[in-house]
C-alpha cells in the first residue's frame, strides 16, 4: 500500500489557507492512485508531528505544498516528521532542484519519500499558465498579453526569488506571451510598479503563492492599484495606467496544482498509473479550487 501525504502551512486564523490543500487532496483521492491521501499542517491538525501515524500504508510519499525551498522544507517539515538522517545536502539543490530523498520516520518506523516543494517543480510552470487561462477565460491566452509571476521575495530566503525567476524564464522560453516578468512584493523589481514593466495593454498577474490570504487578497491588489481598499474588491480586468490588469490570485488555488503534487510523488517512485493524465483533463473544466 502507498500513501500520499500533502503537507502545508495552514492557519490558526482562517480556513482559506488550507482549503486548496484539501481540495487538491480530494482531486487526487478521486483518481484512486493512492490507497490513502492525507493532509498534515504546521498550524492545523493533524499536525506534521502526528500526520504519519494516521497513515496505514508502508510506503509514504510526502509532498510539501510550499512554493520554494527554505525554512519549512529544509528544517521544519523534516524535523516535525522526524525523518531520521535528514540533512539538506541530501537534496543536493541549488535552490530549485530538490527532487526527493527516502528516509525513515522515527516515530512510525516507515519509509518516507520526502519530495521537493511543488513550487519548484517544472510542471508548476504549466499551472501558472493554466491560471492565466482561467482568469482570462481564454485557453489560448498569450498573444498581445504580458505575464507577471509575483513572488514574496525576502532577504531571508533567496530561494523564494529563484523559484519565481525559474518559472518566468521557462514561460519566456515558450514564446507564448509577448512579455514575461518576475516581480516581487518585498524587493526590486516591485509589483507596485507593474505597469512600468510592460508595453502590452493586457497583463496577467499570477502570484506564486499556495493559498489566498493577506498577501494575495489585500497587499498585492492594493499595491498594484487595482483597488484603494481590498474590502471593496476589484475588477478583473482592472484598468491601471492605461493597462488592463488581469489579477489571478494565488496560483495554488488552481485545480491543476493536483497534477504537480502527483508529479512530485511519481518522480519519487510512486506508482500512479494514468493519474497524471486524468487529473490534467479533469482539472481543465473544473472551477479553480478554493474560490
Amino acid at each position: 500500500m502507498q500513501a500520499l501525504v500533502i503537507v502545508a502551512h495552514g492557519s490558526h486564523l482562517n480556513a482559506d489557507s488550507s482549503a486548496p490543500t484539501r481540495d487538491h487532496a480530494d482531486t487526487i483521492r478521486a483518481v484512486g492512485a493512492f490507497d490513502e491521501v492525507k493532509t498534515g499542517f504546521w498550524k492545523e491538525e493533524p499536525s506534521l508531528r502526528e500526520v504519519l501515524r494516521t497513515v496505514e500504508s508502508d510506503e509514504i510519499y510526502v509532498v510539501p505544498l510550499f512554493v520554494s525551498e527554505g525554512y519549512f522544507t529544509e528544517e521544519v517539515i523534516p524535523r516535525e516528521l522526524r525523518l531520521e538522517g535528514w540533512d539538506v545536502s541530501k537534496w543536493d539543490s541549488d535552490g530549485v532542484d530538490a527532487d526527493h530523498v527516502s528516509l525513515t520516520a522515527a516515530d512510525v518506523g516507515k519509509t518516507v519519500h520526502y519530495c521537493g516543494p511543488v513550487g519548484t517543480h517544472e510542471s508548476m510552470t504549466d499551472v501558472i499558465i493554466r491560471r492565466a487561462e482561467s482568469v482570462t477565460g481564454d485557453p489560448d491566452v498569450g498573444e498581445g498579453f504580458g505575464l507577471v509571476v509575483v513572488g514574496h521575495g525576502t532577504e531571508r530566503n533567496e530561494n523564494s526569488a529563484k523559484a519565481i525567476h525559474y518559472h518566468a524564464e521557462r514561460i519566456r522560453d515558450m514564446d507564448r506571451f509577448d512579455e514575461v516578468r518576475a516581480l516581487f512584493m518585498d524587493e526590486e523589481p516591485e509589483v507596485d510598479d507593474v505597469t512600468d514593466h510592460f508595453e502590452s495593454d493586457d497583463v496577467v498577474v499570477v502570484p506564486l503563492f499556495v493559498a489566498d490570504g493577506f498577501h494575495t487578497q489585500e497587499d498585492i491588489p492594493e499595491d498594484m492599484g487595482l483597488t484603494d481598499d481590498y474590502r471593496e474588491g476589484y475588477d478583473v480586468p482592472a484598468e491601471v495606467d492605461g493597462h488592463r490588469i488581469w489579477y489571478a490570485g494565488a496560483v495554488g488555488t488552481e485545480g491543476l496544482m493536483a497534477d504537480v503534487i502527483l508529479e512530485r510523488a511519481a518522480d519519487a517512485g510512486a506508482e500512479i498509473g494514468e493519474a497524471i493524465e486524468v487529473v490534467r483533463e479533469r482539472t481543465r473544466s473544473a472551477p479553480a479550487a478554493g474560490d
Binding site: H9, S11, L13, V67, Y71, F72, H152, N157, F214, E218
Partner: peptide, 12 residues
C-alpha cells in the same frame, strides 16, 4: 496585523 495567519514567518 498578522492576518495571513501568524505567521510572520518567511514565506516560501
Amino acid at each position: 496585523g498578522e492576518a495571513d495567519g501568524d505567521e510572520a514567518e518567511p514565506a516560501e
